[in-house]
């Protein structure tokens, strides 16, 4: 502020008091335009759902919602007349089980890696970290074949279990648990805590933030995972939301745009809600994975 005042003085041409300098105006316009581009497709999706079906675009360009009741009836229709609810249930189960597994298994391993020495630790850690570099492309087909030979195709465990050893999650939790002071662990040991009690009463509660962040990121990833359910659970019994949406959208689908958008909107709802509630955590989590990676 001070420096700006100085410039204003030393440069009489700019001393004319404008409410907005040209720079700032440009900035606001740009930001607003980009925000529209970013948000509008989602907004548009909402409008399509909450509009009377069948109105031609020329009459209703769908820039704002027009009929609340039409939207509700579409949502009810999708829920009652299609298998959407079942897909929803599958996706929720898939996400929750994955989150639980990733958190439990990951935090236990991170606890050992971050706070203790054990034989082979370095090599194990290096292997896990190297795996972060290996693209999914190389493992997806053999993993599918393995899952198939375990007889896990079209099962929930087939969906969930292969994704539980998350190297990313482990890395994130290790980074976090490393910041637990050694003194604290030793104090607890002197207080008589066993190895498991150290994990349960010290490491876990102290990593609560990281665990919540990881849970959210895992949710986002699982909910949006398209490729793995597509190949490992191709039967309609275990369709996830992603697959159903994919079907609705496919060129051979007989659904109208209203119905498709309703399906889309419902699929977008959980992550959008999560985002609204946990915005800070999500952003911090991503920023952290970026700065540490």
């Amino acid at each position: 502020m001070t420096a700006e005042a100085i410039t204003a003085y030393s440069n009489p041409a700019r001393a004319v008091a404008l409410p907005f300098s040209g720079w700032a105006l440009l900035k606001w316009i740009t930001a607003a335009c980009i925000a529209i581009v970013a948000v509008f497709p989602i907004w548009w999706m909402v409008n399509v759902v909450f509009a009377e079906p069948g109105t031609p675009v020329s009459l209703n360009p769908r820039l704002y919602p027009t009929s609340f009741s039409a939207g509700i009836s579409k949502i009810l229709m999708i829920m009652q007349e299609t298998d959407y609810m079942k897909a929803y249930y599958v996706s929720v189960a898939y996400s929750l089980l994955t989150i639980a597994g990733v958190l439990i298994i990951g935090s236990m391993a991170a606890f050992e890696f971050a706070l203790f020495e054990f034989p082979g630790k370095r090599i194990l850690f290096a292997t896990v970290m190297l795996s972060l570099m290996v693209p999914t492309a190389v493992t997806i087909i053999p993993t599918y074949l393995l899952t198939a030979s375990l007889g896990w195709l079209n099962t929930m465990q087939g969906l969930v279990v292969p994704g539980l050893a998350s190297a990313f999650g482990l890395f994130m939790l290790i980074q976090f648990m490393k910041t637990i002071p050694r003194d604290m662990i030793e104090a607890a040991r002197l207080d008589g805590a066993s190895h498991f009690q150290l994990y349960r009463y010290i490491a876990l509660p102290l990593s609560k933030n990281a665990l919540v962040t990881l849970a959210i990121l895992t949710f986002m990833k699982t909910w949006g995972n398209f490729m793995w359910p597509l190949i490992v659970a191709p039967s309609p019994e275990l369709y996830t939301v992603g697959q159903v949406v994919g079907l609705f959208n496919s060129p051979y689908s007989h659904q109208t745009v209203d119905i498709v958008m309703t399906a889309n909107l419902l699929a977008a709802l959980p992550p959008l809600l999560f985002f609204l509630i946990f915005q800070r955590k999500i952003v911090e989590g991503i920023a952290m994975s970026g700065s540490k990676g």
Binding site: I34, P41, I42, G246, V257
Partner: peptide, 24 residues
Amino acid sequence: IFRSAFFLPVVLPAFLAATVWRWI
């Protein structure tokens, strides 16, 4: 506000982004 707005598309699963854009 702007950060949230610009970030919003990230929250959508890629499959949704693709299908919405397909209609666009």
